[in-house]
């Protein structure tokens, strides 16, 4: 399990981020004191750091620079300063990404996973869907030696349904997820995509896997 270190002085935000990221399959650690912060980050043996820029007594950008001197640890900066100059400065100090408060949580999640996939060599680019395997890099579903290619939207929908396996997912929820990842589709397109996805699953002999719950949404069983 990948370990993420949260460096944020707002206790509540830290707590909620921890809950959310743990739900999404990461191990979470956070700093409680902000003295000797650079050393603490390096000692934490994390795979990624979420770093708030406005910390008590120290400047996040300075910390970022110090960490970068000795380590290539992925750093995502979280800030409330929403302007180009700060963004550019952070990137110059060696941060990998920059998100502004209030952040879009799906985008943050996507940035974390792409960063982790890029930096870890043993990175897993396949998601196990029990009866089939979802290949992230080729965007295909595989079953034994058969494989079917998915379009961008179908791929995203299936990935989301796997994450929410055995739970009913409403159409609105799927739409919101797709929009957050920059596919701005409408209601009809979603219906078409779901139908095609179901068809492709059936091609692999996976009938009844994607169920429609009338008036509620869809469920992957």
């Amino acid at each position: 399990m990948k370990k993420i270190l949260i460096v944020e002085d707002d206790e509540k935000l830290r707590e909620e981020l921890k809950i959310f990221l743990e739900k999404n399959g990461y191990e979470i650690d956070y700093l409680e004191s902000f003295d000797n912060i650079t050393q603490n980050i390096l000692d934490s043996k994390s795979d990624l750091v979420l770093l708030d820029i406005n910390l008590p007594r120290v400047d996040g950008e300075y910390v970022c620079k110090e960490v970068r001197k000795v380590s290539s640890l992925p750093i995502i900066i979280i800030t409330s300063r929403n302007n180009e100059i700060d963004e550019l400065l952070s990137i110059n100090y060696g941060a990998d990404h920059y998100v502004t408060k209030p952040f879009n949580i799906q985008i943050l999640l996507a940035k974390i996973s792409s960063l982790l996939r890029r930096t870890s060599f043993d990175g897993n680019d396949k998601i196990d869907g029990k009866e089939f395997i979802l290949n992230l890099s080729k965007s295909t579903i595989e079953k034994k030696d058969k494989q079917v290619e998915l379009t961008k939207n179908e791929f995203k929908i299936l990935k989301y349904l796997i994450e929410k396996r055995n739970k009913i997912v409403s159409r609105d929820e799927i739409m919101e997820y797709l929009w957050e990842s920059e596919s701005f589709i409408d209601d009809n397109t979603l219906t078409v995509n779901i139908t095609r996805l179901r068809g492709k699953l059936e091609e692999l002999g996976l009938k009844e896997l994607l169920q429609t719950k009338r008036g509620q949404g869809y469920m992957l069983v």
Binding site: D10, E16, S80, P102
Partner: peptide
């Protein structure tokens, strides 16, 4: 002030997400 108020907004949104 706006930078300050962004943190409680972000926190509230995280609470909602959870």
């Amino acid at each position: 002030w706006i930078h300050e108020v962004k943190t409680p907004i972000a926190t509230s949104k995280m609470i909602i997400e959870n």
